[in-house]
């Protein structure tokens, strides 16, 4: 138990930054890569969570719980975002009978 709670002192903060940058890039790549709107929402969740991880890492390095409260607020916003986003997906499926984002290109021009 003692090793787990003090393991963070052995890992440099740079490694957490690199990990969350990697996850954010993968999420952004997924948003550009996929056509399924549900997969795009999942990649958005990935990007949210990379920011969460970085906030928790900085909070742990400064020994300040404010960062963890921010992560809590981001989780609240993500839950609300997913509820609205998935209801938009249901509405889209009902109106155009598909979840392909290329069918929603009328907003592009």
């Amino acid at each position: 138990m003692k090793e787990i709670t003090s393991a963070i002192q052995l890992i440099p903060l740079q490694h957490y930054i690199i990990l969350s940058v990697t996850l954010f890039s993968i999420g952004m790549m997924g948003v550009l890569f996929r056509r399924n709107i549900i997969a795009i929402l999942m990649c958005l969740e990935l990007m949210f969570n990379s920011a969460n991880l970085l906030l928790a890492a900085f909070s742990a390095y400064h020994s300040d719980p404010s960062g963890q409260v921010f992560v809590f607020f981001i989780m609240i916003v993500a839950a609300a975002e997913v509820a609205v986003g998935l209801s938009i997906v249901v509405m889209m499926k009902r109106n155009v009978e598909s979840v392909d984002i290329n069918l929603l290109n009328r907003l592009k021009w």
């Binding site: 787990i4 890992i11 969740e45 969570n49 991880l53 928790a56 742990a60 963890q68 989780m75 997913v82």
Partner: peptide, 22 residues
């Protein structure tokens, strides 16, 4: 990772909210 970062409360909330609900 949250448990490694000494964020035990966040780890539990993350499991419940993300993997359990979202």
């Amino acid at each position: 990772h949250y448990i490694l970062l000494n964020a035990q409360f966040l780890a539990v909330v993350h499991i419940i909210v993300y993997t359990g609900a979202i």
